[in-house]
Computed example of a mutant assay.
Amino acid sequence: MDIKNSVALVTGANRGLGRAFAQRLLERGAHKVYATARRPETVDLPGVEVLPLDITDPTSVRAAAEAAPDVSLLINNAGISTGAGLVTGSLDTLRQELETNMFGHLEMIRHFAPTLAGNGGGAVVNVLSAMSWFGGKGATSYHLTKAAAWAMTNGVRLELADQGTLVTAVHLGLADTDMAAGWPVAKIAPSDLADAALDGVESGSAEVLADQWSRDVKSRLTMAPEEFNAAMDHALAALLAG
């Protein structure tokens, strides 16, 4: 797929990774970029077409699909991290995180799949995380939701193959956004993450490991759980030590 002259829709485009995606799409020659947000007035990027969208609300998703019938590239970026614990945390909070990080993305794919098929197949990008593969204290709910989103991504890739739709999973460690502001470690620039993902789409890649952290975590998945956890503890300690 050629990013130039594509018609893209980006969720959560008012800040962070979503805004970077929208900006790089414009800079790389996309014909049109739909920038969506729950509060559309917070989108401040010139040159985009702004749409209101709450990915956890099926009515809102349906309205966005009807308003953007020319989309050929769907970028599922919107997400949240609540810090809820799995054993003692609020189940309502956990469900909210799962509704956003997995079911919200799936809702978007279900509504836009016919649009993509009608426009030649196109592509879907799901912004996931290296935490699709590991958890940490204070982020076990995030791990659960990103693992579920990874499995969902792998599933819809199979289901959309016959209509010629590329489904690309993008994994990263930490990006320099508000969500990661409390971590005093090296982070990938949002624009670099967006470029890595868009390069992956153009090359037809099913998976993009956008930084060294995500590549290292993926390489450890064949380890036994005890070995994996020990390796991750060591890696996290080294990361925090600088």
Rank of each mutant, 00 (worst) to 15 (best):
T11K: 12
I188Q: 13
L160E: 13
G47Q: 06
P69Y: 02
A180C: 14
T177R: 06
R215K: 15
I75Y: 06
L9A: 04
L198H: 05
S132L: 03
L236G: 00
A237M: 06
A130G: 13
T42K: 05
T168C: 12
E107V: 00
A241L: 08
D44L: 13
D216I: 02
T222R: 08
A149G: 05
V71M: 13
T177D: 06
S129W: 03
S205W: 01
P69S: 02
A231C: 00
V156Q: 11
A147T: 09
V125S: 07
G79S: 05
T100A: 10
S90R: 05
N119K: 12
A194V: 03
L239N: 04
E207H: 08
K187E: 03
R157I: 09
N101S: 10
R15M: 00
A206V: 14
N119Y: 09
L236A: 08
L74P: 11
A189W: 00
A169V: 08
T11N: 13
L9I: 10
G85S: 15
V48S: 10
A224V: 13
V33G: 10
A35F: 12
A13H: 01
L26V: 06
A35Q: 13
A224T: 15
A67R: 15
V127G: 08
D2V: 00
T88Y: 01
V10C: 03
K32T: 14
V71R: 12
V217F: 08
H111M: 08
S132P: 00
L86I: 15
E159A: 14
A68I: 04
S219P: 01
M102P: 00
T56V: 06
A35V: 14
L128S: 03
A13G: 00
G12T: 02
A67L: 12
A189L: 04
A194M: 04
A123D: 07
A8G: 02
N14S: 15
N5A: 14
A84F: 01
D44A: 15
E107M: 08
R19D: 01
L209K: 12
L17R: 04
V7A: 05
A194S: 04
L74F: 10
T165L: 01
V208L: 07
V127D: 08
S132F: 02
A224D: 15
T115A: 08
K146R: 11
A22C: 15
T145C: 14
V170I: 10
T11A: 14
T42P: 00
A117I: 08
S81L: 04
A237V: 04
V201G: 05
L198M: 08
G85L: 09
A147I: 03
N76F: 03
V50R: 05
A237N: 07
D199N: 12
N101A: 10
S214E: 04
E49S: 14
D70L: 13
F134I: 14
P46R: 07
T36H: 02
